[in-house]
Design a protein around this nucleic acid. Structure first.
Lengths: 118, 118
DNA sequence: GTGAGTGTGTAGGTCTTACTACACACTTAC
DNA sequence: GTAAGTGTGTAGTAAGACCTACACACTCAC
């Protein structure tokens, strides 16, 4: 089995902790507002990842991208889900069309749309 | 309060039922594989929408787009979520960039990407 | 008037999600 | 040697998601 979320969180936090004691498990748990023992189990893959809100706060506390950390937990933020739900057919097609495009092509489209006169 | 899912399902099914008796609540419940009384409550907004699998089967039974019906239930299919989770930063940016674009502009990009040499 | 079909009411149920509370053992600083 | 901080083990739980089982009342065909 795969534990991408737990491994990632643990390794990022421990790396930060080597330099800054504010990144101890207990202190981070305090900032994120969950029980240290719970975070401990999460980091070791003994518990499933927490809810969306806690993951976002955890990502913020660790200085990581919340969308990425959520993805490691197999989740998509409710904000992005809401975007899709407003125009489901359109965005479903968009996502399926872009699924197999290489990163640079997707990034290029994003850039062009943002810069251009659409 | 808003009951877009229940209203939608009920009205679509009843419209079909006027012509084809195979669209009675009981028969559809049978095809979708859930209890008639449960579907009844769902259609009247007394119960929350069912799980993703049941919604997909319901959409299929009614001849509707599963992504649209899921969206009415406030959900995004796990398939689309998986696409996002594979490249979260990229697709998050994509969705946020396209959020405010008019339908025709989004459709045009999809078309160009599909047809063009990306 | 009975059998087949319609929708609905009541009353549960299980499983998962998402956690908390508290005690323990160990290290380190002073 | 004790106070403060570290991570972890055990135990539990409250609420929601997602359903089932069964009985009831009604209509309509024949």
């Amino acid at each position: 089995m795969d534990r991408p979320f737990s491994d990632y969180v643990r390794s990022v936090r421990q790396k930060r902790a080597e330099i800054d004691p504010a990144f101890s498990l207990r202190r981070i748990a305090g900032v994120v507002d969950l029980e240290p023992s719970y975070l401990s189990k999460i980091e070791r893959g003994l518990e499933a990842p927490p809810g969306e809100e806690k993951i976002k706060r955890l990502a913020a506390a660790l200085g990581e991208d919340p969308d990425v950390v959520l993805a490691l937990a197999g989740k998509v933020s409710s904000e992005l889900q809401a975007i899709i739900c407003q125009r489901p057919a359109l965005f479903a097609e968009l996502l399926r069309t872009f699924r197999n495009l290489p990163n640079h092509a997707v990034a290029r489209v994003v850039r062009e749309v943002r810069d251009g006169d659409w």
